[in-house]
Design a binder for these strands. Sequence first.
DNA 1: ATCGAGCCAATTTTT
DNA 2: TTGGCTCGAT
Length: 782
Amino acid sequence: MGLTKYSTEHYWQLREKIRERLFSHLNPAQLEAVKTGKGPVLCLAGAGSGKTMAMVYRILHLYLFGAEYQRQVKPPFDLTDDDIELMEAWLQDAKEGRITGLPQRMVALFCRNGVEPRRILAITFTNKAAQEMKNRLEQLLGETMHGMWVMTFHAACLRILRREIAVLDYGKDFSIYDAADQLQVVRNIVKEMDLDEKKYSPRMFLSIISRFKCELKNTEKAAREAQGDYIMEKAATIYAEYCRRLKQNNAMDFDDLLMKTVLLFQNNPDILAKYQERFQYILVDEYQDTNHVQYILVKLLAARHQNLCVVGDDDQSIYAFRQADIRNILDFERDYPQTKVIKLEQNYRSTGCILAAANEVISCNKARKAKALWTEKGQGELLTIYEANDEHDEARFVCERINALLDNGENYRDCAVLMRTNAQSRVLEEWFMKRGLPYVIVGGHKFYERMEIKDIMAYLRVLANPQESVGLRRIINVPRRGIGEATLQRVEEYGEAKGMVLFEALWQYEEIGLSTRASKGIIGFLELMEGFREAVGKMTVTGLTEKILSETGYVESLRSEKGADSQSRLENLQEFLSVTKEYDEQAEEPTLQEFLGRTSLVTELDGYEDEANAVVMMTMHMAKGLEFPNVFIVGMEEGVFPHARSLLEEKELEEERRLCYVALTRAKERVFLVHARQRNLYGRMNHSGPSRFLEEIPEDLWKEYMVKDDFFKTTMSTSGRMGVNGGNSMLFSVGDKVEHKKWGQGVVVSAKGEGTDVELTIAFPSQGIKKLLTKYAPLKKI
DNA sequence: ATCGAGCCAATTTTT
DNA sequence: TTGGCTCGAT
């Protein structure tokens, strides 16, 4: 061991060469973002400018080479000739274009002069982004960076809160309420206050409450500021009651996770200091989307070391309605005077025409940081604008152009249809089905929002946290066990009077004096729950879930229901069980609590990519961060896009314009913009002119598409063919031979229903006749 | 307790 | 036009 042939100087030279080589494919701006490890960095990353790559490489650089690269006096003590040879060989390979990952040994040597992973915190908004970052780092390193936190704001806060639960006035098994749970609580309050639900919608109050929390307003402050404004006074009252109930339920909503973490830090300087010391290097993705709490949270954590790198694009801020505050990014330099501003303006995604159009549109906004994307790509094709007769003609046009693209060698999955609102998808879907074009809708209703999933989750939640009444209320009579609304009201009233939560009050069923039937139901329920309670901790989450599903009779009651609906619910439950199984197997120390925490912070978006080859339809909001060779933007009319609700306020209009910018910059090769002369909205025919955004695109960047074919060819024909999209995006017609995952081969006997909910009747020779929803069933055409 | 008719409102939604 | 929700009849 020890060095023989080589000088220490040689080691440092090699290391430097390797470092240069590793980052050699980055452009100068990206490189600067990567190498500026110390101090505040504002990285303005335009659309398609290689932002994720810059972040990933920045972390890699910190890990391997530290924040301030410098030659050390001594090489690692255990450096050997073999190591030197390894480094030389790697360099040789790299020169010949064979960079794959880094050899373990090299990583091990280098990282001794780097930043410890546990000092790094990388925050994203979505699980998907966090996962992607982790994956790419893993790919480069061939190992995971243990101790580093790469996660969403909410996940990070949840972890901190659970760790610091001791100083929090909360039980350690607190539940996390999602939007539906929140709404339920507000609705109950509004009802009890005898407010007219029509005039004072719970939704509105909920959004005001969310704003209070995001602005870190406590109930007193909210009440003080509300004085004189009737609605706000009511809102403040509801806010106070809402907080009280969540507290009583030992529950937090999404906003609480952030707000309580900030409060925790503000009230406990020692705890804050601990995390400041731990996270010496902080990265924040999509900084333009941060709201006030998130802003403060980051500010607190970064205050000590100021090694804060935020990445974002003010032009892509499209979540103001979720309290995202664009000032956070616009004023970053003011907040951190030492800031180094780095602009990533080279775009690697779109053609010149697309980029020019996007630049022109966004330049109409006033509140923005000046920047101009450029590309080395050629001009590419002109954008296409089509004036459709109506929404059907619009959909027809999209189908037709996609078919043309297909003849051109493009794939379905290379095409995306972007719209302003979800409702616009209906007509498009109809036409896609008729034309036999496979498509997927991204977004829409989510797995964890399905009734059966919410039910089983509610059981699990209540078992983890019996104080939790919203979940309890949900499942107490599911499946039916004769505990009706009237009974519940009485139990609740009793509980309220005695200061008990619902679950405690239930135990007092004798005191309350209920009907025999109700009592029997409650006893049955309590006995069941007792059985489950004993199983918590002794069984795996999967085991517990199965126990609940069978002993409550949930599965049985679904089975006895006929129809495709209950069938798909059973399948969803099966899917849920595979989620629990995966968790049980993969988690280091599986617990019910952790499982719940994890799943409540998960959404669907995390992986539509695996889907089959199909056209992707989604809202423009959902498209952020994605890219497609061909992008269709439909509904380019005043009132639709920009949306009618945004026309009054300049601010909102600018947000719509940013949305347009986001939509345009999704495209790599081609953009098709469609507006309709008339459109059926809410059952009424509407005539609106072309979107102002169309007028903002210079004429030399687009061409108008003219109809060549006969109008009658474009009207919908009612053929017997009934197509459907599916998880697999397949189309089925009567007579098709199909293969089902479980039941094997069969023949489609009939198809009925509309939209995505087409129910197929399929004859399986071995299993008999089954009714299935294509949407959910694991079916394949053969 | 449960189901169906009728009424009303109607963006976007990373967690 | 749709879907979500309330209220009234079984």
